[in-house]
């Protein structure tokens, strides 16, 4: 049963990467980052439970903070980009430099 949870955690992480790669909307990239980080903390938690030491669970707690800081910065960048270009399609942001 533990192997099944591991496998579904890996599937969730891969699906987060796929959402980042396949979709063109900026909000989908943020969704993919959040999904990958959450699956990663779930995998850390599973490793902590099946190996019997608490360090994995501590890493899961620390990852929550990193994900929250990341989504705050990401949504601020999304607001600025939509204000500047009027769309969230990342193909439109190729000339956005500096």
């Amino acid at each position: 049963m533990m192997g099944f949870y591991y496998f579904c955690g890996i599937l969730l992480f891969i699906n987060g990467i796929l959402i980042m790669v396949l979709r063109k909307g900026f909000i989908y990239i943020l969704i993919g980052i959040e999904l990958s980080l959450n699956a990663l903390s779930f995998l850390f938690f599973l490793a902590s439970r099946s190996l019997g030491n608490p360090h994995g669970e501590i890493f899961a707690i620390l990852l929550f903070g990193i994900a929250a800081a990341g989504i705050a910065i990401g949504l601020a960048i999304l607001i600025n980009l939509v204000k500047a270009k009027g769309t969230q399609d990342i193909e439109e942001f190729k000339d956005t430099g500096g």
Partner: peptide, 26 residues
């Protein structure tokens, strides 16, 4: 944190910006 904070923040942002259109997966 996730269900109560992050998801609500994302919903608030897309409703504020009025994002409706999205892309089609190839």
């Amino acid at each position: 944190v996730y269900a109560g904070g992050i998801v609500v923040l994302m919903l608030f942002t897309i409703y504020t910006l009025g994002l409706k259109k999205t892309d089609v997966v190839k």
